[in-house]
Amino acid sequence: MEDLEFYTEEKALDLVLGQKGTPERDQYEENMHSFLVGEAIKQARQSKNLTQEELGKLIGVQKAQISRIENGKNLTLSTLAKVFKAMGISAKLEIGNLGKVALW
């Protein structure tokens, strides 16, 4: 029987998408981070028993925009700040040598 080789996630991504710093890999990682942020927003919304429509009304957008946000699309710092503020979530970012920055 042939021996199977196991790969770490990092090695698999290197083989399929290229090394870190290549356009394909950077795009994948950016999309993945956006997806995970959107998923976190969705889970927070659900934990507060809000519908997409209700959250949309709180920040002044349509339900479809909330859906896009939860799918990792149209994510900007101003949008994130509005969403977090509407749900009463405090958010801080650590930005290199600038230190911690509060979104609101």
Rank of each mutant, 00 (worst) to 15 (best):
N97W: 01
E30L: 10
A81C: 09
S78V: 12
E39C: 07
D3V: 03
L93I: 15
I95Q: 09
G99E: 02
E30S: 13
I89P: 10
I66W: 03
A64R: 15
E54Q: 13
L77I: 02
A91R: 09
M87R: 14
I66P: 09
K100W: 10
L50D: 04
L15I: 15
L55P: 12
N74C: 05
A12L: 14
A102V: 07
K100G: 06
E29C: 01
E9V: 12
E94Q: 09
H33V: 08
L36M: 10
A44R: 13
A12C: 02
K48S: 11
S67G: 10
L80H: 06
R25E: 04
A40D: 04
G96K: 06
K48V: 07
L98Q: 13
N74V: 12
E5A: 13
L4R: 13
N74K: 08
I89V: 15
Q46M: 06
K20Y: 03
Q27A: 13
K82S: 15
N49V: 00
Q52S: 05
N49C: 04
K57A: 11
R68I: 07
Q27V: 08
E29K: 00
V16F: 07
A91C: 10
Q46W: 04
Q46V: 11
E5S: 09
K11L: 07
L17W: 04
I95E: 10
Q27G: 03
M1D: 01
S78R: 15
L103V: 09
L50K: 09
K20H: 06
P23L: 04
E2V: 06
K20R: 08
G18M: 02
Q52T: 08
G60L: 05
A44K: 15
E70G: 11
E2L: 03
R45M: 00
N31P: 00
E2T: 11
M87P: 07
T8I: 11
Q65H: 11
E30M: 07
H33Y: 07
I89K: 15
Q43W: 05
L13S: 13
L77S: 03
G60F: 08
Y28L: 01
I89Q: 12
Q46E: 14
A91E: 00
E53P: 01
G18L: 04
A81Q: 14
N31G: 11
L103P: 09
Y28N: 06
K73R: 15
A102K: 11
L77A: 02
N49K: 15
Q27M: 08
E9C: 01
Q19V: 04
Y7C: 05
Q27E: 12
G88R: 11
Q62T: 03
G18P: 08
T76S: 13
G72T: 15
N97T: 15
V83E: 01
A91H: 06
A81K: 11
L50N: 01
G72H: 09
E5C: 06
G72E: 06
N71W: 01
S47Q: 13
V83P: 02
Q52E: 09
G72Q: 08
V101I: 14
E30R: 14
S47G: 09
N74G: 02
G72I: 05
A86S: 09
K63Y: 02
A40Y: 04
F84W: 08
E54I: 13
L58T: 00
L75F: 05
V61H: 08
V16D: 04
A102C: 11
